[in-house]
């Protein structure tokens, strides 16, 4: 597969503290890659190494097949988690300054900023100072500055924090659009819904170690437990429950339903077919609800992290 960014055995220590321990990752071109981990896992250090803010103690980072070079900065757009702008500087001036630092010419930066400001309908802010804007407004400006130089690799660290739902959606759509236009996106977050929704790949790091990585669906398949959620209607629900208990591993569960069902989670042997289970159930009761329990990223996250604690 074609990888835009490859990390090879990257390690980083600060004094006695190991921030990253032999991390290897491959980020496919054109993907949305979720970098997950609890606070202090080493996500930010990893991202800072990509941005050449910090140097790894050992291992290397390859962008487009070559080790990172100083001028690669122009191909990376980074929206840090801790982000801010100069308070007393005007929005337009500031955006121009940051764009020029990324290597754009002034004229080019101005032209592209005009496009983005119109697109996000924030043209009126050009002459305003940042201190006159709300936090969410300032975040929009930061987003524009991050993507303005059309980087191959976009790194968003908790991009939605600070946005209201409307603007969060707007930014999400823009990110998806950027991917469509060929950008590769690295997400760092501990908000699992956004990973679930947007990411094709993910890696989970915890205390500097990589616990798992791969395609989101593949990981989910690995973590599925052959459990099915069923809603049954029977004249004698207690008798049915006992009968099921003898044959399968079951547990109570809860889901929305208009009927007064017997709601259960049923686990079958990995080699058993769900069809057989369904046939068996239909012979015993009326089946209103039959769904495979797919582990959410959140479940996988919690399960992996706690089992490695």
């Amino acid at each position: 597969m074609d990888h835009l960014l490859v990390a090879e055995n990257v390690s980083k220590r600060f004094g006695d503290f190991t921030a990253l321990n032999n991390i290897s990752l491959e980020i496919p071109r054109g993907s949305i890659f979720g970098l997950l981990g609890p606070n202090g896992a080493g996500k930010t250090t990893f991202i800072r190494i990509i941005n050449q803010i910090t140097m790894p103690d050992s291992g290397r980072m390859l962008l487009d097949g070559h080790p990172l070079r100083p001028d690669d900065i122009a191909h990376i757009g980074y929206l840090p988690e801790e982000r801010g702008l100069y308070k007393s500087m005007k929005v337009g001036e500031q955006a121009l300054y940051l764009a020029q630092l990324k290597g754009l010419s002034k004229a080019e930066a101005r032209e592209r900023l005009k496009y983005w400001f119109e697109r996000l309908q924030i043209q009126d802010w050009w002459g305003k100072k940042i201190q006159e804007l709300s936090k969410g407004m300032a975040q929009k400006v930061q987003f524009v500055v991050t993507v303005l130089h059309r980087p191959k690799l976009l790194i968003f660290d908790e991009p939605f924090s600070g946005f209201d739902p409307v603007n969060a959606n707007l930014i999400k759509d823009e990110i998806l659009q950027l991917r469509k236009e060929g950008a590769t996106i690295l997400f760092s977050t501990h908000r699992m819904e956004s990973v679930e929704e947007m990411c094709d790949y993910l890696a989970l790091i915890h205390r500097g170690h990589k616990l798992l990585d791969g395609e989101v669906n593949e990981i989910k398949r690995q973590y599925k437990s052959n459990t099915y959620e069923v809603g049954l209607i029977s004249n004698e629900p207690e008798l049915l429950r006992k009968e099921l208990e003898e044959r399968f591993e079951i547990s109570e569960t809860e889901f929305k339903s208009i009927n007064d069902d017997l709601k259960l989670k049923i686990k079958i042997e990995p080699e058993a077919s769900p069809n057989d289970l369904l046939v068996y159930l239909t012979s015993k009761a009326q089946v209103n609800h039959f769904v495979e329990v797919i582990p959410s990223v959140n479940d996988i996250f919690i399960k992996t992290v706690t089992s490695n604690a």
């Binding site: 941005n51 803010i53 100083p70 900065i73 990376i76 980074y78 840090p80 801790e82 982000r83 801010g84 702008l85 100069y86 308070k87 940051l98 630092l101 990324k102 930061q142 500055v145």
Partner: peptide
């Protein structure tokens, strides 16, 4: 200090050397 408290530092530092 202003750059630190404003948290613009990380944005700048991803473009230029400290």
């Amino acid at each position: 200090i202003e750059e630190k408290t404003n948290r613009i530092i990380e944005i700048i530092i991803s473009s230029v050397k400290p």
